[in-house]
Design a protein around this nucleic acid. Structure first.
Ligand SMILES: NC(=O)c1ccc[n+]([C@@H]2O[C@H](COP(=O)([O-])OP(=O)(O)OC[C@H]3O[C@@H](n4cnc5c(N)ncnc54)[C@H](O)[C@@H]3O)[C@@H](O)[C@H]2O)c1
Ligand SMILES: NC(=O)c1ccc[n+]([C@@H]2O[C@H](COP(=O)([O-])OP(=O)(O)OC[C@H]3O[C@@H](n4cnc5c(N)ncnc54)[C@H](O)[C@@H]3O)[C@@H](O)[C@H]2O)c1
Lengths: 230, 230
DNA sequence: CATTTGTTGTTCTGTTTTTCACAAAAACAT
DNA sequence: ATGTTTTTGTGAAAAACAGAACAACAAATG
C-alpha cells in the first residue's frame, strides 16, 4: 500500500499552513519554496516536492500564491471545524495545556478536564473540571473524539482503557508509558523526558573531541575510549 | 557518511534504558527482545538489530542480561552525571516542566528558571526563578549547557539569541517558532499545537467512509489555476 | 546422548523519504 | 526581440530505516 500523506508530510503541511496564515496576516501575497523551507526548517526542494505531490502548483517565477495554497491546505487537512477535546489528568501538564491559547486560529476548544480529585486543583482553570465518574457519559453525549492524557504513569494504562471504552478515537499521551495505536484508537506519544535526555546526549556527543560513533564497535574490551580519531 | 547512532536509534536506546531500570527494580534479571519490543512499541527484530549494531550480546536462549545491558547503555548514552538545565519562560508550560519529577532516575536537575517578570508568578515553584538580567552570568558561572525555552512566541527568537550568546549548547524549544540547529547550538523543537492538529487529522481521516488520499490527485479540475500578479 | 525448543545474530531485501541537479517556464531588462 | 535571471517541477540518485527470514547455537528434555 503506497501511502501518500505520510506522517512527516502531514506535519509539514500543518506547519506550512500555520506559516501561511501568519504571512497572510502580514499582507504578503506570494511566497517561495525557500521561504517556507526556512520557516519550517526543511530544504526548499522538499517544499516543492510536497506541493508537487499534492498537485499544488506555483508560478515559474513568482513563487506560490498564499491564498491559493492556504485554501488548498485547508481542504486537504480538513477545515478543523471547531472540534472539542478533553484532558484527562489536570495536574501540572494537563492544566498548562488546558489554558493554551495558541492552537491554530483557535480551532480547538478544550471542552472539559477530568481528574480523580477535581476539587483539589492548585490554581483556577477556565475550563470545567469534572470527576472521572462523568468521563464516559460526557464523551458520549458531547461526542468527543480526541483526548489528551496527562495522568501519573502508574494509572496511564487504566485511563487509556477507560478512554477506549468510552469510544475515544485518538489520544495524545504525555505519560512515559508507550501506549499503542489500535484499530479504533490512534495514539501519539510525546515523551518530554526522553526528549530532554536525547538533547543532552546530542550536546555531549557534539562537544566531545573525538567521534563517539567511531569508538563504539571496539569497546568490547574495556577501555578503548582513549584512542579515537577522525 | 554512514551514521550509526541515527536519531531514531538514540531515542530507542533511551527508551530501552528506561524500561530496563524499571524491570530491574521489579527484580527481573533477564529480558527478551520481544519484551523490550512490546514495551517501546517496535518489532523484536529491530531490538535485536539495535543491540547487534552496538555489539551488545545476549544469550542464545536466555535473552539479554538486564544489568549488563543497563550498564552498557549507560556507557553509550553517557552516564548523565547529574546535569543541570535551566528553563527560560516560567509560564504555564515552563513551570510544569520545572516541577517534573519524572526524569530518568533523577539525573537532571532544574538549576533555575528565568522570566522577564519573576515576581508575578502564579503559584510557588520549588526552583529559584531569576530575572533575565542574570541569565548570561548564571549560565557561564554554573556552566549550564542545556536550556528549555518556553516563552511567548513573539520573543522566541530574541531569547534564542540570548541563549546562544551566553554559550548554551542545546535548546528544547516549546514555542511554535521553528528554531534551527547551528554549528554550536543544537535545537530540538516540540510543537504541541501541531501534534494535536496532527492527531485530529489522523482521527478524522481514519473515520471517513472513503479514502482521503484517493480523493487527492483529481481535484485539479475542480477549481485549479493559481493566478499570480505583480 | 540425541532431540527438541526457543531465542539470538545477521544478512538480505524492500520501502520510504530526502536530496541533487538541471531543464523548462515566466518575468524582467535592455 | 533577445538575452538574462529567477524559481519551479521532477526524474534519478542517495540515504535512512525497517522487516522478514533463517542459520547458529544454548538450554531443556527425555
Ligand atoms: N510535568 C511535566 O513537565 C511532565 C513532563 C513529561 C511528562 N509528564 C508526564 O505527564 C503526566 C502528568 O504529569 P504532571 O507533572 O502533570 O503530574 P501531576 O501529578 O501534576 O498531575 C497528575 C494529575 O492526574 C490526576 N490523577 C491521578 N490519578 C488519576 C486517575 N486515575 N484518573 C484521573 N486523574 C488522575 C491527579 O489528581 C493530578 O491532578 C505524568 O505521567 C508525567 O510523567 C509530565
Ligand atoms: N501552554 C501550553 O500548553 C503550550 C503548548 C504548546 C506550546 N506552548 C508554547 O510555549 C510557550 C509558552 O506558553 P505558555 O502557555 O507557558 O505561556 P505563558 O504566557 O504562560 O508563559 C510565558 C512566560 O514567559 C515569560 N516571558 C515573556 N517574555 C519574556 C522574555 N522576553 N524573556 C523571558 N521570559 C519572558 C512570561 O513572563 C511568562 O511567564 C509559548 O510559545 C506557547 O506557544 C505552550
Amino acid at each position: 500500500m503506497k501511502s501518500k500523506l505520510n506522517k512527516e508530510l502531514v506535519i509539514r503541511l500543518l506547519k506550512y499552513r500555520r506559516i501561511l496564515t501568519q504571512l497572510k496576516s502580514l499582507g504578503f501575497e506570494k511566497v517561495f519554496s525557500n521561504n517556507l523551507g526556512d520557516a519550517i526548517g526543511v530544504a526548499p526542494a522538499l517544499v516543492r516536492k510536497d506541493f508537487s505531490l499534492l498537485v499544488l502548483g506555483g508560478n515559474k517565477r513568482g513563487g506560490y500564491n498564499i491564498d491559493y495554497l492556504s485554501e488548498q491546505l485547508n481542504r486537504i487537512l480538513g477545515k478543523s471545524r471547531e472540534q472539542k477535546i478533553i484532558i484527562v489528568g489536570m495536574g501540572k501538564i494537563g492544566s498548562a495545556v488546558a489554558q493554551y491559547k495558541g492552537f491554530h486560529q483557535g480551532d480547538f476548544e478544550v471542552a472539559a478536564g477530568f481528574d480523580i480529585s477535581p476539587e483539589s486543583l492548585l490554581h483556577k482553570i477556565e475550563v470545567p473540571v469534572l470527576p472521572m465518574s462523568q468521563l464516559k457519559d460526557f464523551i458520549q453525549t458531547q461526542q468527543i473524539e480526541v483526548a489528551i492524557l496527562a495522568v501519573p504513569e502508574d494509572v496511564a494504562t487504566d485511563c487509556h482503557r477507560q478512554l477506549k471504552d468510552a469510544g475515544i478515537r485518538g489520544i495524545l499521551n504525555f505519560t512515559p508509558i508507550e501506549l499503542k495505536t489500535t484499530e479504533n484508537c490512534i495514539i501519539h506519544n510525546i515523551n518530554i523526558g526522553v526528549e530532554i535526555e536525547n538533547l543532552f546526549f546530542q550536546v555531549v556527543k557534539s562537544s566531545l573531541p573525538f567521534d563517539v560513533e567511531a569508538a563504539l564497535p571496539d569497546l568490547s574490551d574495556e577501555d578503548a575510549l582513549a584512542d579515537a580519531e577522525t
